[in-house]
Simulated assay, not measured.
Amino acid sequence: IPGATLSRIENSKMSPTFSVLARIMIALDVDWIDLVGPRKLAPGEHLMSFTDADEGSRTQVRGMECVVLHSQDSAHSLSLTIDVHARDLSDVGGLVGHRGEEFCYVLSGTLALHFEGREPKLMEAGSSALFDSTTPHAYLAGAATGAKILVVVNRAYGSHMRSAGDQVEP
């Protein structure tokens, strides 16, 4: 990443794309939670979060419309819904791995779940997958109508959670 780009990001003059942020995190050997730091719950405080229909924080991740359902920094999981319409790996920046475990549930449509070294897994509404997120992967539409999925990522906090042999590429 060019130094000028990094400077603009550091000075809030530019927001990095997901792939740029992923490359920075991999180069620094940090997870995204290392960048923002998990908020510790106060003594006696319990994690609890509710999201009503049509609520959540809307964002774009790898060119897909996402709704983060619960974004508590102290949570060990991140839940979001994703509208998947891209049909080509280049449209989502290719395969990407990250620390943690991931659960995917197809709410509607047809999903093509891609993994490095494997044939894409076509999944219909009601199908689910659970996998080690370090395996480079990507969500693509398995049909022209796309898919809506629920994804729950169990976050691996900090570099101390990384196994000695983990190799994750952007």
Rank of each mutant, 00 (worst) to 15 (best):
Q72Y: 09
Q72F: 04
D73A: 13
D73L: 14
S74L: 04
S74A: 15
A75N: 14
H76R: 02
H76G: 15
H76I: 02
S77W: 15
S79R: 14
S79K: 11
L80D: 05
T81G: 02
T81K: 04
T81M: 11
I82M: 13
H85N: 02
H85V: 05
H85L: 03
A86C: 08
A86I: 03
A86P: 09
R87N: 07
R87F: 03
D88E: 15
D88L: 10
L89E: 00
L89C: 00
S90C: 05
S90K: 11
S90A: 07
D91L: 07
D91K: 09
D91G: 06
V92T: 11
V92W: 14
G93H: 09
G93M: 05
G93E: 01
G93V: 09
G94L: 01
G94I: 06
L95G: 06
L95T: 09
L95P: 01
L95K: 04
V96S: 00
V96G: 00
V96E: 10
V96R: 05
G97H: 13
G97K: 13
G97A: 02
H98P: 01
G100I: 12
G100V: 14
E101V: 09
E102Y: 02
F103N: 07
F103R: 10
F103C: 10
C104T: 05
C104M: 04
V106A: 08
V106G: 08
V106W: 13
V106H: 12
V106T: 10
L107M: 13
L107E: 02
S108D: 14
S108R: 15
G109S: 03
A112E: 01
A112F: 06
A112K: 05
A112W: 04
L113M: 08
L113S: 03
L113E: 08
L113W: 06
H114Q: 03
H114T: 00
F115D: 01
F115P: 01
F115N: 03
